[in-house]
Structures are given as structure tokens and as C-alpha cells.
């Protein structure tokens, strides 16, 4: 039997991918050996991120690591990928929502409709602002050109933020050439890892989401062609990648807030930030009104948050 070769593209650039995906793929290739090899490509390397979904659907690439939002997948759940505003507080919320609250089933349905296999979802880091000028109140957000996720950007426009979408690899340069005033795309770990901390000066500790939600996907035909043990191996390696990010980000965020020297921390007071959280509830309703599936997902988010509040500490402190 000949060796199976997959081409996989991640939406992360090389610097970040070295942490969040390279180890898992290396592991897969070592174990699968002569039976199967995955060639990994970074952000925009083979196809631009905007074309990623089509490429996956058609089999230009066989597998993808991305969030639904960035790759603009033509499904009803797209807006919930990446940073759905205030959708989660901790990175453990994401796997719980998917595995225990029914999101897996909805995602599976939605992606099967468009010929793509949804393998599993995992959490990355929270979404914070890193900017050239300090943000100490909501008024400071006004008129800032910020690189952020599509849905988060849509939400933030009501506070005067001007969302800008550029290829991931160009962000550092775009901050320096003045195309951007800042970034709301990651936590502080990534700001340091990918070099954004070198071009910005301030880090806002308030976040608009506690964890990025993204997934592994595969072209449906390619997936079905795999023997069962390789499917299992692929799932295991995806889980390994999810697990790695859980501790890498959680520890990294705290460490760099305490010991990092490149970014000065600023905070918007809780009372003022509460208006953003309230606005998010309105935004959720807007989204839910768009379709039946979106309503189902929003309801799950609501149920989950209500449960967490009832559970009390350490799940929720307010």
C-alpha cells in the first residue's frame, strides 16, 4: 500500500505554529511513519486565509486548523468560532461547551452539509487589546484601527473601533507602517511570541472573550478514505494539540503579565467595562434572531453561563 500524504494548512504563522501545531504534527508523522505523512503549511502559505474553506472543500488542501470565523466557512455557526464576544470566560469553557453542552453535534451537522469533516474544537488564548497608545477608558477605543476577528470586529464597532482585516503575517509591519493602531487578536503570550509586543506599548487586561474557539477540519472524502486507526491517531494528535495549548496559554498569560517587560498593563474599571458586557448580551440576541441554528447555539451559551453562575466559585466570582 502506498503512503498517504496530506497537506494541512494552519491559520497561524510560522512563529506561533512552532508552539501550537508543529509538535502535534511531528508526533503524528513519527507514529504514522511510512503509512501516512502530513505536510504542514502556515498562514497564507498555500492559499490565502480567505480562500481556505473553498480549498478544503475542493481538496486543494486536505486538512485545516482554523477558527470558523477567520476562514469564513459558509455555515450557520461561523460567527461563534474565534472570539464570540463574552462567549467564554476560561479556556476550559470551550471543550466543556463542545463535549458536554452539545456544540459538537451542531458543528458536525453544519459541516457535513457543506462536505467538510469537523474533527474537534479546542481553546486557545483570551482576546485582549495590544495597542500603541494606552486604553484606560472606553473613550480611548474610539477611532482606533484594530486588527481583529470579523465577528469581534462587528461587535466592537459600536465603541468606535475600526476593525481592519489583513493577512496575519503582515500585522507587525502594518502596525509600523501606520495601517493599524493596535491588535485585538490574542492574549499576551502571542503578543510576545509573534513579535507584536515589539511594535505595541500597552496591553489592556480586560478581555472580550476568555478563549478563542477553533477546530481541526478535514476534506470529507479524504477523511473517509483513511483507515480507522489513522483516523483515531489523527484525533489523538488533535487532542494533544488542544491539551498543549491549554497549559501553554494559561501559564503564559500569567507569567508575562507578571514578568513581561515589553508591554505596560492598563485596565478599564469594572463598572465601565460592564457596559461592554451588557452590549454583548444585546449582540447575542441580534445573532440569535438571524437563524434557527444560531438561536440553538446562543441558547446553549446562555444555559452554560447560567449554570456556571449557579455553581459559584471557582467557576464564577461575580
Amino acid at each position: 500500500q502506498s503512503k498517504i500524504t496530506w497537506r494541512m494548512q494552519t491559520y497561524a504563522g510560522a512563529a506561533l505554529a512552532a508552539e501550537v501545531i508543529d509538535p502535534a504534527i511531528k508526533m503524528f508523522n513519527t507514529i504514522a511513519g511510512d503509512r501516512m505523512q502530513i505536510e504542514l503549511f502556515y498562514a497564507d502559505q498555500l492559499v490565502p486565509t480567505g480562500e481556505l474553506f473553498q480549498a478544503l472543500q475542493r481538496g486543494t488542501i486536505d486538512a485545516v486548523q482554523s477558527d470558523d470565523d477567520s476562514m469564513a466557512s459558509p455555515t450557520e455557526v461561523t460567527v461563534f468560532g474565534g472570539y464570540f464576544p463574552f462567549g467564554s470566560r476560561y479556556s476550559l469553557d470551550v471543550p466543556v461547551l463542545f463535549n458536554q453542552y452539545g456544540l459538537n453535534e451542531i458543528w458536525d451537522e453544519e459541516y457535513s452539509k457543506v462536505g467538510v469533516k469537523h474533527i474537534s474544537a479546542g481553546a486557545w488564548d483570551p482576546c485582549h487589546f495590544a495597542t500603541k497608545d494606552p486604553i484606560r477608558s472606553l473613550a480611548d477605543l474610539n477611532g482606533k484601527r484594530i486588527f481583529t476577528f470579523p465577528t469581534a470586529g462587528r461587535f466592537l464597532t459600536q465603541f468606535g473601533v475600526v476593525p481592519v482585516n489583513l493577512p496575519w503575517e503582515d500585522i507587525e509591519v502594518a502596525v509600523q507602517t501606520g495601517e493599524l493602531d493596535g491588535i485585538a487578536w490574542s492574549g499576551i503570550t502571542e503578543d510576545y511570541t509573534v513579535g507584536w509586543a515589539d511594535v505595541t506599548n500597552y496591553f489592556l487586561t480586560n478581555n472580550i472573550s476568555g478563549a478563542w474557539a477553533g477546530s481541526f477540519f478535514a476534506n470529507m472524502d479524504r477523511w473517509n478514505e483513511l483507515p480507522e486507526d489513522l483516523q483515531t491517531l489523527f484525533r489523538v494528535c488533535c487532542d494533544q494539540s488542544h491539551y498543549y495549548r491549554q497549559w501553554w496559554y494559561w501559564g503564559g498569560e500569567a507569567n508575562l503579565r507578571v514578568n513581561g517587560t515589553k508591554l505596560e498593563l492598563t485596565t478599564i474599571p469594572d463598572e465601565e467595562w460592564a457596559t461592554v458586557e451588557t452590549a454583548a448580551q444585546v449582540f447575542w440576541e441580534e445573532i440569535a434572531a438571524e437563524s434557527e441554528t444560531k438561536r440553538r447555539v446562543v441558547d446553549i451559551f446562555k444555559k452554560y453561563n447560567a449554570d456556571m453562575v449557579k455553581a459559584g466559585r471557582p467557576y464564577r466570582y461575580t
Partner: peptide
């Protein structure tokens, strides 16, 4: 079918 939009805030 579903019309593709750019993934920017302008959409």
C-alpha cells in the same frame, strides 16, 4: 446560494 462576503467589518 449563500453569497460569500469578505471577512471584514465592512463585509
Amino acid at each position: 446560494g449563500r453569497l460569500e462576503r469578505s471577512s471584514t467589518a465592512w463585509r
